[in-house]
């Protein structure tokens, strides 16, 4: 298959994925105990109000019509109103999504900054003490729940040493970033462990490869061989890993935002469960899944440019 064909096929593939995501979220709301309308309006709603909302949401029509209606609304970004905040769900999410995306973006950068140099050190010293120390530290990181790491960092660095703010989000742009620093580090730690383990393995594989031996034999300086030949090739799998990890990162953001009181969609989701704010939960599940599938698509395309073998 040629390059254009591959891209076209991959782009088309996302349409059925979107529809299926919609189906899952639709079914999920159907599983709500009792009638979704009475669940939304509460026990004290009048029959008239229930019937009006039923008709408005199309519950008096066939299940397939309802699903199509749901898809149509989702495409136009109409998820109804939040029960708790009494504003359109779309607005609520639009306000908070950038915060969560900034948090996950920062966390990815921090994770790479931690993992790449350490993976290099570990791979070059494979099975010697620096390798062991780094691996033990990361094994601990991998086994530590995010909320716990967050609480410890929050107490030590924010409450005791007063280096960072204890929570919240600040006023200005720079202030926002400052407030997101500690949450991003928290989210980055376990991710860094995953990247580091993967990158260490692929670095060791590439270090054994014939082309690396050839580059050395050619008399290229050590630095150049490491950067241009070894790291570049090993990082291809890391790009894929970062892309595939977006779901775990967004899930981690839900917990991190709850610990640090960051006003993103993750905290909104947890708050909405306690408020029984089903339209918000439904819309967020859908939006986050769509984000993940778009990131998967972008990852595939990036991987294709980095590694032309993929299309063959």
């Amino acid at each position: 298959m040629n390059k254009t064909g591959y891209i076209a096929a991959r782009l088309l593939q996302i349409v059925p994925t979107f529809i299926l995501i919609g189906l899952v979220v639709f079914v999920l709301t159907r599983l709500l105990p009792g009638d979704p309308v009475s669940a939304m309006l509460g026990d004290r709603a009048t029959d008239e109000a229930v019937n009006r909302l039923r008709a408005q949401m199309g519950f008096d029509r066939s299940i397939w019509t309802q699903f199509l209606l749901f898809l149509e609304r989702a495409v136009t970004g109409d998820f109804g109103s939040s029960i708790a905040y009494r504003v359109p769900v779309t607005r609520l999410i639009a306000e908070r999504l950038p915060v969560t995306l900034t948090l996950t973006g920062l966390a990815t950068i921090f994770a790479l900054l931690m993992a790449v140099p350490l993976a290099l050190v570990a791979a070059l010293n494979a099975n010697r003490w620096p390798d062991y120390v780094i691996r033990v530290v990361f094994q601990v990181g991998l086994s530590s729940p995010i909320f716990y790491v967050g609480l410890v960092l929050l107490t030590v660095l924010a409450a005791w040493l007063r280096i960072f703010p204890v929570g919240g989000f600040g006023e200005t742009m720079l202030d926002h970033l400052w407030h997101l620093f500690l949450p991003a580090i928290t989210l980055a730690l376990s991710f860094a462990a995953v990247i580091m383990r993967n990158l260490r393995a692929s670095l060791m594989e590439v270090l054994e490869a014939e082309f690396v031996e050839f580059a050395r034999a050619k008399g290229l300086p050590r630095q150049i061989v490491l950067m241009r030949h070894v790291l570049r090739n090993a990082l291809i799998t890391t790009v894929t890993l970062v892309g595939l990890h977006i779901g775990a990162l967004l899930g981690g953001a839900v917990i991190t935002e709850s610990v640090f009181a960051v006003p993103g969609v993750g905290r909104l989701m947890v708050d909405s469960i306690f408020a029984r704010d089903y339209p918000v939960i439904q819309a967020l599940t859908l939006v986050l899944a769509v984000i993940v599938s778009v990131v998967f698509l972008v990852t595939d395309l990036i991987q294709m440019t980095l590694d032309p073998r993929v299309t063959r």
Binding site: T17, I21, V24, L244, G251, T285, V292
Partner: peptide
Amino acid sequence: LVVTFPFLVI
């Protein structure tokens, strides 16, 4: 389909 939903979120 399952992998597009963040595990914790679903």
